[in-house]
Design a binder for these strands. Structure first.
Length: 494
RNA sequence: GACAAGGUGGCUGAAUGGUUAAAGUAACAGUCUGCAAAACUGUUUUUUAUGAGUUCGAAUCUCAUCCUUGUCUCCA
């Protein structure tokens, strides 16, 4: 008996614009594909939010007992910088600027990507395929689309015929655009394009002589178009129809729209049952942008070495901050917001620690079973992590009350409470205890600070408050905060 | 200019027709403390961008206006 047989998830499907009861194609199994990063620069914090949302989804589906195959690709063949025929792919361009091999660019930023995700405690996907590793599949796909009459070759390049496709299919089914509107809004570039229509998109591009990344194909030495890789890799590993396709909101059009079209054109069926789109991350109320300087990368946010935030924040605090908003909402990253989350996160973690020393009674003054189901209800409602966290804080208040003997809990309920908290806080939200998050040289530090705490205690007993305050204040000045509690003094660093 | 998603207390952010609009933070008070901080407890703040409409009833539906973000276009 798996949990998913009792817990029914509703997912907001971008395709229909409604929340729908989730039903996998094969009972007990889920295929999920998420568009991964283009590795031509350090991973963008907005990308981290998107992938974190799907990491949470992956974690929850697994927790429910589903066998999940989670595929997240690495785009290492580069998107075209623009869609004109003279387009240059992002990776090649970056390689030229840095005067190194394109695959060095790919290697460098793939490593960076994995490092950052590791810091934020991401689970690795089941498969992480690369675009360059699936050129053959992409060529096969193009041939099929040509055979089916939905693509044409011009001068060694192959384009998808959007107008032809739209006669029998709905180009715009996902993005809710109408082809007529697109035509109306497109001003053709005179004589610059081999395309029959400006709305057509490239499936295969003939490489210019200077283009380094190139592969042989029936049409020319060249490289695949930027929408094709996801179609090739998702269906290769998940089947021609699969359950969930995720990605950032910015990919909805044209990228995901084109994926649907390619699948329909090649195989005559829609590939995906549930489309999920994570919303954007803003910084201080505005879009992040290199050109305006309104940008912060993950490493800077963690270290505090930036001009935007007052300090660095731990990975779990940032994760907690992101989980406090729904994945479908725009989230505004601010220093005040992070500070608030940090305090809340610490409060939650204190309560989790207190669970170990709680005294049990013959009855419980709080309905743990009902509370537990409320946590599931929150997650089942389109992965509503903010509501889940609100529920967690409700139980934090009760934990504190039990600690101060204003409330009671039975041994059985305490066991259930511990298991449930651990499940939701660590397994599903993916948070880590503060001590596990910054485990660098803490032993020596702890020894030294505990010595100072002992000296201060002695001074306080002797009512030498000048000395005790000096110890406290000077530790505070270097970022070590002493916390006097009923049972002695502890410390925390920031 | 077109399309899409949004605009909720000081800040972050839930709730999409139905009693007192979650939760965190902040502020204030109390407990603790030599004092402070931390911690814990309690209290306070919004009437849901603006205006009009539908409804017995709207943050939630409709229309208009303003603003934000994304994509396309333009520009470059």
């Amino acid at each position: 008996m798996q949990l998913y047989q009792n817990q029914h998830i509703n997912i907001y499907n971008s395709l229909t614009g409604k929340k729908e009861t989730f039903k996998p194609i094969n009972s007990g199994y889920i295929g999920m594909y998420v568009c991964g990063p283009t590795v031509y620069s350090n991973v963008h914090l907005g990308n981290v939010r998107t992938f974190m949302s799907f990491d949470m989804v992956f974690r929850y589906l697994k927790h429910l007992g589903y066998k999940v195959r989670y595929v997240r690709n690495i785009t290492d063949a580069g998107h075209l910088e623009n869609d004109a025929d003279v387009g240059e792919d992002k990776i090649t361009k970056k390689a030229r600027l840095e005067e190194i091999e394109p695959m060095e660019i790919v290697q460098r930023y793939t490593v960076d990507f994995h490092n950052v995700l590791d810091k934020f405690n991401f689970l690795p996907p089941s498969i992480e395929p690369t675009a360059t590793g699936h050129i053959i599949e992409q060529i096969e796909l193009i041939s099929k689309i040509i055979d089916n009459g939905f693509a044409y070759e011009v001068n060694g390049s192959v384009y998808f015929d959007v107008h032809k496709y739209n006669e029998t299919n709905d180009y715009g089914i996902l993005s809710k655009r109408k082809l007529e509107d697109l035509i109306h809004n497109t001003r053709a570039l005179d004589g610059q394009s081999d395309k029959r229509n400006p709305q057509d998109f490239a499936l295969w591009k003939k490489a210019e002589p200077t283009h380094i990344m190139r592969w042989p194909s029936p049409w020319s030495d060249g490289f695949p178009g930027w929408h094709l890789e996801c179609t090739a890799m998702s269906t290769k590993y998940l089947g021609e129809q699969f359950d969930i396709h995720g990605g950032g909101m910015d990919l909805k059009f044209p990228h995901h729209e084109c994926e649907i079209a390619q699948n329909q054109a090649a195989k005559g069926q829609a590939p995906v049952n549930y489309w999920m789109h994570a919303n954007m991350l803003e910084l201080n109320g505005a879009r992040m942008s290199k050109s305006t300087g309104n940008i912060i990368n993950p490493a800077e946010l963690l270290s505090g070495k930036n001009d935007i935030m007052s300090k660095g924040y731990s990975p779990s605090v940032i994760r907690f901050f992101m989980m406090q908003s729904a994945y479908r909402s725009v989230l505004d990253l601010t220093d005040a917001g992070l500070l608030a989350s940090e305090k809340g996160f610490n409060r939650l973690m204190n309560a989790v620690d207190d669970l170990e020393s709680l005294k049990t009674s013959n009855n419980s003054s709080f309905d743990i079973k009902k509370w537990k189901q409320n946590c599931y209800n929150a997650m089942n409602d389109d992965f509503n992590t903010p509501i889940l966290i609100a529920n967690l804080f409700e139980v934090v208040t009760h934990i504190n009350a039990i600690k101060e003997t204003r409330a009671t809990i039975t041994a059985d309920d305490l066991k259930l409470l511990k298991e449930t908290i651990s499940t939701f806080v660590f397994d599903i939200l993916g948070l880590k205890k503060t001590s596990e998050d910054n485990a660098s040289g803490t032993d020596k530090l702890t020894g030294a600070v505990e010595l100072l705490i002992a000296l201060r205690k002695e001074a306080r007993v002797n009512k030498d408050f000048a000395l005790s305050d000096k110890i406290r204040d000077e530790l505070a000045a270097v970022g070590i905060q002493l916390n006097d509690g009923r049972d002695g003094t502890t410390f925390s660093t920031n």
